[in-house]
Design a protein around this nucleic acid. Structure first.
Length: 423
RNA sequence: GGAGAGUUGGCAGAGUGGUCGAAUGCGGCGGUCUUGAAAACCGUUGUACCGCGAGGUACCGGGGGUUCGAAUCCCUCACUCUCCGCCA
């Protein structure tokens, strides 16, 4: 959510910036500013009446104490009218606040200056490419064939137990999952991220803090009886650790990591894109989250990109990095880099990581601040990224490292898997 | 699931209708003293909004009510803790 003060002061820059997302927020912003000036004058008026009432109340108290009951009762009568006025203004003020809030929720983050205008994924810029396409002397199998052939994942069993999109990993398939999680966590720890184990369900306040609520409610599984939500990503509980926190000085850099399963309802998906591991309702992911001083968030984003790059390089996968265009950048993000690995058998790129900076968009909702040099509180910047999401990594590993009768496991994983190949 | 007790500033903990944004202690910050430190002493120390400013308003778990006036009384919701039950 953008800060109202920023909208007051930088109206034109915000409108210009958001054009990169192919949206024109001029009318929304004008509406907000109208409500806002109305709100300010009503509020000032209301507070003046409140001040008057406070003064009267004090007077009446004094009069009673002095035993001047008659005067006190006269003063009491004066309050009746003021109280009515105050109540009327209060409901107007609250109404305006609600309307402003609703409009603010509709405005996405302003893209960073590096982000190019664009409509869809077709306009994303490729900023880095590494690795080469694997060559096979045979027609490579897609991963959903390989998982069946080597008995690694049972999709039908998941359907029986839960439903589509909840695979059952078994044997070396399960061990490969565990190995990847351990490898990713180890790498994150070595890069200075503190490891956390967090709840997999969150309350409403947390959902609002990171922006899943109120708008994207339908994307999360909701346990209505307890009013708790299954997390769609570890970003939610990890970032909410710092909800309503004021850091004591401006000298901070908070780096957190955690593994969690992620639950996504993904309503409306269908077709070959959801085949096998491509899109699931439950999947595993190691997330990295950072809270930074505004001056340092640009550098932090680059570090995170380097970290993810390192993971994919160590795994030996062919990949590319895209800087998303305005239209494809997520609602809360100011700039996002997507990492895609090449799937040799499906002959397409699979998104395995998304690294974003949110600037103050999340911290404004989270009320996550720090005390600056001048002792004033300011909003922190937040960033996060997947490092990494498992399913498509598994798909790519299986497909790209298959031979005619086995699957070769990348060397960096050997200490974690305990085996070097699957056959 | 049953019974009870709570929720006050960074923490601990007073406060049951006005002088309470809130005693006191601890912690933090600044200072005096000291070669330095500790101790002692003095001062200071929440957040947000409106206003150019003076200043004003709001906040004692959330919401609502009673009252001229609520941290304090009433209603309601949430959460926490203790005991019992159940349980990995």
């Amino acid at each position: 959510m953008l800060e109202i003060t920023r909208i007051r002061n930088e109206k034109e820059a915000i409108i210009e910036g958001l054009k990169k997302r192919n949206i024109d927020v001029t009318s929304t912003i004008d509406e907000i500013l109208n409500f806002d000036s109305d709100w300010r004058s009503k509020k000032t008026e209301m507070e003046a009446i409140a001040a008057e009432l406070n003064g009267l109340a004090k007077e009446i108290g004094d009069l009673f104490k002095q035993g001047k009951a008659v005067e006190a009762n006269q003063a009491k009568e004066k309050t009746t009218d003021l109280k009515t006025q105050e109540a009327g203004l209060k409901s107007e003020v609250e109404g305006l606040e609600g309307q402003i809030q609703n409009l603010l929720y509709q405005i996405p983050n302003v893209p960073n200056e590096l982000v190019k205008i664009g409509k869809s994924e077709l306009d994303n810029e490729t900023v880095y490419e590494a690795g080469t396409e694997p060559k096979f002397g045979f027609e490579p199998f897609p991963h959903w064939e390989l998982t069946k052939k080597y008995d690694l994942i049972d999709f039908e069993l998941g359907v029986k137990i839960t439903g589509a999109g909840f695979p059952v990993y078994k044997g070396k398939g399960a061990k490969l999952q565990r190995a990847l999680i351990n490898f990713f966590l180890m790498e994150a720890s070595q890069a200075g991220y503190e490891e956390y184990q967090v709840p997999h369900m969150v309350n409403e306040a947390s959902g609002i803090g990171t922006g899943q609520l109120p708008d994207k409610e339908g994307q999360m599984y909701h346990s209505t009886i307890d009013d708790l939500y299954l997390i769609p990503t570890a970003e939610v509980p990890l970032t909410n650790i710092y909800r309503d926190v004021i850091l004591p000085d401006s000298n901070f850099s908070i780096k957190m990591t955690g593994y969690t399963p992620c639950f996504r309802r993904e309503a409306g998906s269908y077709g070959k894109d959801v085949r096998g591991l491509n899109r699931l309702h439950q999947f595993d992911k190691v997330e990295i989250v950072r809270i930074e001083h505004p001056d340092n968030s640009a550098g932090a984003l680059e570090e995170m990109v380097e970290h993810v790059k390192g993971l994919l390089t160590k795994l030996g996968l062919q990949f590319r990095i895209l800087r998303l265009c305005g239209g494809d950048t997520g609602f809360a993000s100011a700039m996002t880099y997507d990492f895609e690995v090449y799937s040799a058998a499906q002959k397409k790129w699979l998104e395995v990581s998304s690294v974003s900076r949110f600037d103050t968009f999340q911290s404004n909702r989270l009320k996550l601040r720090f005390k600056g040099e001048d002792k004033k509180t300011q909003l922190c910047h937040t960033l996060n990224g997947s490092a990494l999401a498992l399913p498509r990594i598994v798909a790519a590993l299986l497909e790209n490292f298959q031979t005619e009768n086995e699957i070769i496991i990348p060397e960096v994983l050997h200490p974690f898997t305990g085996f070097k190949s699957i056959s």
